[in-house]
Each structure stands twice: as C-alpha cells, then as structure tokens.
Computed example of a mutant assay.
Amino acid sequence: MEDVKIDSSLSFGGYNWRVLDKQNDTALIITENIIEHRSYHDAYKEITWADCALRKYLNGEFFDKFNATDKSRIIPVINKNPDNPWYGSKGGADTQDSVFLLSIEEVVCQYFGDSSSKLHNRGRNQRYWFERKDENNCKRIARLEVNKGNIWWWWLRSPGRVNVKAVYIHGDGNIGIQGNNILKGNLSDGKCTGGVRPALWLKL
C-alpha cells in the first residue's frame, strides 16, 4: 500500500475506490462509481445527516458487508456538518461515522477541484445551482456501477435549502445546492432515487 497516491484507485472490500486524500498511513477514499440507489431518508420530514436513514444504513448494514479484516482497517472519524451556506438550513450535530457521504464543502473546496469562490460568493442570479460551466464539474461526474455507461446524480450529506432536501451532484457534475427531495429524490426520475458513493478513511 506504500504506492497509494492521491487520485489513484484501489480495490477494497469488493469495490473500486478513488483516493481523495492521504495522511501518513491513512487515506480518504470514495467509490469510483455510484454503487446503488437509495433515498436519503425513509420519511418525508425535516432531517439532518445525524438522524437520516442513509447514515444508519451506511454505518450498519453496509458496513457489516465488510469482513472482520476489512472492518479493522476502517477508521471512525468525527464529521462536521455545517449549515447550508446559501440558505442557512441546519446541518445538525457532529457525527462519528465509519462510512459517510461527503459534504458540500469537501466536494466543492477540497477533493474535486477548488470551486470555493462560487460557494462563498453567490452570484445575484444563482438560486439553485452553481455555474453550469464550472471548470470542475467534469471531475464530479459519476457513473452507475451496474451500468458504467450511464451517469447519474449522487447525494452529499449536507442539507438543501430546507431540511426535507439534501444537496446532490447533478449528472453533469454541477452542484445542486438547493437539494433534492430526501425521500423521492428528483421527482421526474420516477422510482430511481439518488446515487450513493460511500466514503471512508482507510488504514493503509
């Protein structure tokens, strides 16, 4: 594992992952592809990451799919959950997570290029989106694991403009900072809800 570098790929627990960060003998990794469809929560109600059904699933049923050796390499971390920077909706309490979704700040400012100027300097006509021509959009595009030819939108853990929505990455890589419906996602997609790209800190 000594050759692991940022932006390299690795195999772990039956999935392919992308390395987002490396600190000493640990790495932050995210699945290369969207591995499944899931709603953010199982009821249409105001919710934050701390209490949502998707967090419970990732740290419960999903985590339990790993064998004992792999589990021992996954490092629990404390995640900050800031309020939505445009709308002020509550991000909720800090959480201890073994597996998690990335926040809008992590995706926009750190690991997929730096679009922080667009996050912190909202344009007068920007209501729901960043600029569609954001140069970093291409870095955020994700494909479905089951059909790698299809791109899809994927969840972040941050709240949308209200707490019945959560921020997401559109299929074209743009930031849906207003959020999608936590239960049904984008209603026009019918039964297909948001994509899930788990992230975790791994002991190398």
Rank of each mutant, 00 (worst) to 15 (best):
V167Q: 08
I141A: 03
T26H: 05
G88W: 07
E46K: 12
C138T: 12
K5Y: 05
L144N: 01
A142D: 01
F130I: 07
D172H: 11
Y57M: 11
N16I: 11
I151H: 03
K45T: 15
R140K: 12
D114L: 09
I151M: 10
W154G: 03
C52I: 02
S103H: 00
W49C: 01
K191V: 12
N81I: 09
L58I: 12
L204Y: 06
I177V: 14
V108M: 09
K90C: 11
G194S: 11
I182Q: 02
P159C: 09
Y87H: 14
Y44A: 12
T69H: 10
I104M: 07
Y111D: 07
D97W: 00
K56F: 07
N121Y: 03
I47P: 01
V107D: 00
R122D: 00
S72N: 15
Q178H: 12
H37C: 11
G160M: 06
L10T: 10
E46H: 05
T95E: 10
L101N: 02
D114F: 02
Q23F: 09
K56R: 14
D3S: 12
Y44I: 10
V19P: 04
Q110F: 06
Y128W: 07
V164I: 15
D172K: 09
P85G: 03
I177T: 06
I30R: 01
E135C: 11
D114V: 09
I75D: 08
I104Q: 01
K118W: 08
W129H: 09
V99F: 02
N79I: 06
S89V: 04
L101P: 01
E36Q: 14
F66K: 00
N180Y: 08
N79L: 15
C52L: 06
A43V: 12
S89G: 05
D94K: 14
D97N: 15
T193R: 04
Y40M: 13
R18V: 14
C52V: 05
R161V: 08
I177C: 05
Y57F: 15
E32K: 13
L204R: 08
Y40C: 03
K65R: 15
I175S: 00
D25K: 15
A93R: 12
G179W: 01
K65N: 13
V146R: 09
A50P: 01
L101H: 00
V77E: 07
A93M: 11
I104T: 06
F12A: 09
I75S: 07
R127A: 09
S89A: 15
G60P: 05
N84V: 03
R140Q: 04
E131W: 02
I175A: 10
G88M: 10
P198Y: 02
D25F: 04
G60Y: 06
R157D: 00
P76A: 09
N150F: 07
R157N: 10
Q110Y: 12
H41F: 06
I6P: 00
V146L: 10
R18K: 15
K65C: 11
N121V: 00
K22A: 13
L101C: 07
